[in-house]
């Protein structure tokens, strides 16, 4: 199988707290990869380092065979990694459609000159952006809210919209930070269908999730972080039986306060 992303010895420290130490993991093309662990284990920090929001203190990411730039979010997105946030972060004054259109920013080119003159290229690009955004809204199932300002959408729809916006950047790897947080059972089931659809369409998915059932049912492989260290990485069935993992989740083990 082809490796899409390889993290090598990633480390990140905040003051006295070692949020990530020597985390290495490998994500293969086309899989759904779960990143789990107790609260404060460093999962979101890993996302932030990967997507360039933070600069790692050590280590490197190799994506599609070449090294990823660190600390430069827009370059990471350009290389094909998109993310969502644990606490939804939409552009609140934009409509659903415009949110997704904004997501297409990096794949489009129109500059000030094109915009001011409204030349053929710009108009065509704008039309395509609109259509694509609409298609994506349909893809996640909220096209009827295209014209609704995003802050007025329901919680579940906001989650979907955020995924659509991330997809608009045309990623190869989609990193979802607790996409099922705050969802009820029906919504979670629908989300599962959506993620499977995304995977079928050829996009690799990386997933932070607390909902163990969702992770086990969805992920091909899972890595477990605890106190900034990777303590296991395998198929869900094996990880589930790993003693270190069980200890970490039960709050026992030597780290307990």
């Amino acid at each position: 199988m082809i490796t899409l992303l390889e993290a090598r010895n990633i480390g990140k420290r905040f003051g006295g707290l070692q949020a990530l130490s020597d985390v290495s993991l490998t994500i293969r093309k086309g899989e759904v990869y779960g990143l789990i662990g107790p609260n404060g284990a460093g999962k979101t920090t890993f996302f932030n380092v990967l997507t360039g929001a933070y600069t790692p203190d050590g280590g490197e990411f190799v994506f599609n065979g070449s090294e990823l730039p660190t600390g430069k979010p827009h370059k990471v997105v350009g290389r094909g990694i998109a993310r969502t946030f644990q606490n939804i972060r939409l552009f609140r004054e934009l409509t659903a459609l415009e949110n997704v259109m904004a997501g297409h920013h990096i794949r489009t080119k129109a500059g000030v000159w094109g915009v001011l003159t409204q030349n053929r290229f710009t108009r065509e690009e704008e039309r395509l952006t609109t259509e694509r955004a609409y298609e994506l809204l349909k893809y996640v199932g909220i096209e009827r809210f295209a014209d609704v300002v995003s802050r007025n959408l329901s919680y579940g729809d906001q989650r979907r919209l955020e995924i659509a916006r991330a997809l608009a950047t045309e990623p190869q790897l989609l990193a979802l930070d607790e996409p099922a947080a705050g969802m009820n059972a029906t919504e979670t089931a629908q989300l599962k269908v959506l993620i499977e659809q995304i995977r079928r369409d050829g996009i690799t998915v990386m997933l932070i999730e607390h909902d163990v059932k969702l992770v086990m049912g969805l992920c091909d492989r899972v890595a477990v972080l605890d106190f900034g260290k990777k303590i296991a990485e395998d198929v869900p069935a094996v990880v589930q039986k790993n003693e270190a993992v069980i200890a970490a989740y039960l709050g026992g083990g030597k780290h307990a306060h």
Partner: peptide, 12 residues
């Protein structure tokens, strides 16, 4: 303007 971090995260 609405969310600088999210704007960076979509490649702006």
């Amino acid at each position: 303007r609405d969310d600088e971090l999210a704007a960076k995260a979509i490649g702006i």
